[in-house]
Design a protein around this nucleic acid. Structure first.
Lengths: 337, 337
DNA sequence: CTGAAAGCGCTTACAG
DNA sequence: CTGAAAGCGCTTACAG
């Protein structure tokens, strides 16, 4: 095992040209099976390692993808996105690609600085996780490499997005709550914080409409300000029997708040969440919630990027991936009046 | 902005050779300031992006590092390691490096298959997070690239490791418990599960020794089997007044178990953990625990790898990074008898 | 089935 | 201060 074995070294040893080595190692036509076998064996023996950079230079492809996560997200959200990243890595591997994580600093986002890995051609495209500022979305929409937004979208432009089906997820979950006899159902979340939350709210609203339950202003309860910072939740005077929360973390906090105020969950109030994050199993009772299908979303996102790499004109638009409701213990069936 | 601008294109536009472009863009000597400025400006205007692969090929360096995490870790541990990965990415960026996550599958670990990114020379070295099987450690110890173990070590060989100071962390935390008047102090954790847990146990033991508190067999309580799978915790007959847990997750579970059995925390039993993970703040009461210094550990690990990249013979041995005790509400001061 | 030639886009001596 | 030449390790036509 010398320091640096190249195809030429193998060629000399086997007594053929390096072109033949290249063909053999890549299983291309034009080399006899016998010779192929031999070359592969010798390469193995010599401890040959393929040099991706030479190939990259030839083809103008890095076989890397950049996974961009804005720095500003809370630790909890980050953890969620990191799970995505992990799954993306796995999926990319099956395409012979690698994923490079790029945490976009707030400063770079504000000053519209593109990731270094873009300026150095280290990646062939980007998957962006988590809401970016408008200007930055505009900027990244104009670069030469394909970009997919994962788990968020904006209306400004035509970047393809892969999204959880927030709307139908909460719609179905709310239907479930209604089927359990609830009529006084509140939504917890700030409708103006993110588009995801807005869609979840609309899913809740659709369920109410369908069941001819009136939307009450005092039953749309803020959990954060428009910048996403959590604020204290205020319970309405006329207590609901069920709370549809925009995510599990909020549901978790709400349960604590309810318990502090002497309410039992789910006996007095039912609570449902979204995400099936760690909060869903840590809360007591455990939460009925919607599980985001991270695996499928990752698979689709990568498939889209690969499609755009082959044909840069390809457009996918917005693709919604359904989540699955996970039934646990936070909803109580109540008697119909 | 054409598809692909090279230094040669800039050279033509400016009317010099591509050598001068290279020197100017890399701020090397031998180009007048005036010309440098002009070249940089033109490069910017033309939308030039540097091609790392050409440089990589010349130098035999990829400017990427592989971050390896074995697949088998629990979701919780993964989240912890992913935080490490994120911090590593940030630190690497300051060295002009990128981090490529590589989840090592159980199959590849068993069959001693090296990461694809190694065989394709996509990375210059590895940082490994999380205990690997012995055979794999042997294998990875012999490869041509530098390797650092982060957050674990083995005795078998000389791979440099960066570790939390498990021993002193728990030692100091146990001292704190003792200072609060406790004498009946149990340790929760399987001493044979990992070397980290073993060291934490020894820190606990040292504190007992120093305070002349006898080590009781019934006060060393198993929380998992030797493969790391959690088992039900059995409380001793003669209840301790304090529990030193090998991590926060276990402490979290223990608190629930204690509360189910009618004990109040910290009134009846004090509980401390390790990691300052999400469980530490989600538990009620919140946990006094040891915060792992992810940032400093990441910085040191990257520094070591860079050192080894410059000089492959460099050895760092085991480096312990101190954590910080985070005081919260899970320890009660009890009266000295 | 096999190989000589050219090129991917840089950088590193070296010469002027 | 500036540039011609060679080379990093592959792959892609093309010729035989």
């Amino acid at each position: 095992m010398k320091g640096n074995i190249t195809m030429r070294d193998i060629a000399e040893k086997v007594g053929v040209s390096s072109v033949t080595i290249s063909k053999a190692l890549n299983d291309k036509e034009g080399v006899s099976e016998e010779l192929k076998e031999k070359i592969k064996r010798v390469a193995e023996e010599m401890g040959y390692r393929f040099n991706t950079h030479a190939k990259s230079m030839k083809e103008g492809l890095s076989y890397n993808l950049g996974i961009v996560i804005p720095e500003r997200f809370s630790v909890t959200t980050q953890a969620f996105y990191l799970q995505f990243y992990q799954m993306l890595s796995k999926v990319l591997d099956s395409y012979h690609y690698s994923g490079i994580l790029y945490i976009l600093s707030q400063a770079d986002e504000d000053q519209l600085v593109l990731p270094r890995i873009y300026n150095e051609k280290k990646v062939d495209g980007f998957i962006v996780l988590g809401q970016l500022g408008k200007k930055y979305v505009e900027l990244i929409g104009k670069i030469e490499s394909p970009v997919i937004f994962l788990d968020f979208y904006t209306d400004q432009n035509e970047i393809d997005s892969v999204l959880t089906d927030n709307f139908y997820g909460v719609y179905e979950l709310t239907n479930y709550v209604v089927r359990n006899g609830h009529k006084k159902i509140a939504f917890v979340g700030n409708v103006h914080a993110t588009s995801s939350i807005q869609d979840r709210y609309l899913g809740y609203y659709k369920s109410l409409l369908e069941h001819r339950i009136e939307l009450r202003k005092d039953y749309v309860i803020k959990d954060r300000d428009e910048l996403g910072r959590y604020i204290d939740i205020e319970l309405p005077e006329d207590m609901p029997t069920a709370f549809v929360c925009n995510n599990d973390e909020v549901a978790y906090n709400l349960i604590h708040l309810l318990q502090k105020n002497g309410f039992h969950v789910p006996e007095d109030c039912s609570v449902v969440g979204f995400d099936n994050s760690i909060h869903a199993t840590l809360s007591d009772p455990q939460l009925t919630t919607v599980e985001v299908d991270i695996e499928e979303m990752s698979r689709v996102a990568v498939k889209f990027i690969m499609g755009k790499l082959e044909n840069p004109k390809k457009k996918y638009g917005r693709t919604f991936i359904k989540g699955n409701i996970v039934y646990r213990d936070s909803v109580k069936k109540i008697e119909q009046k």
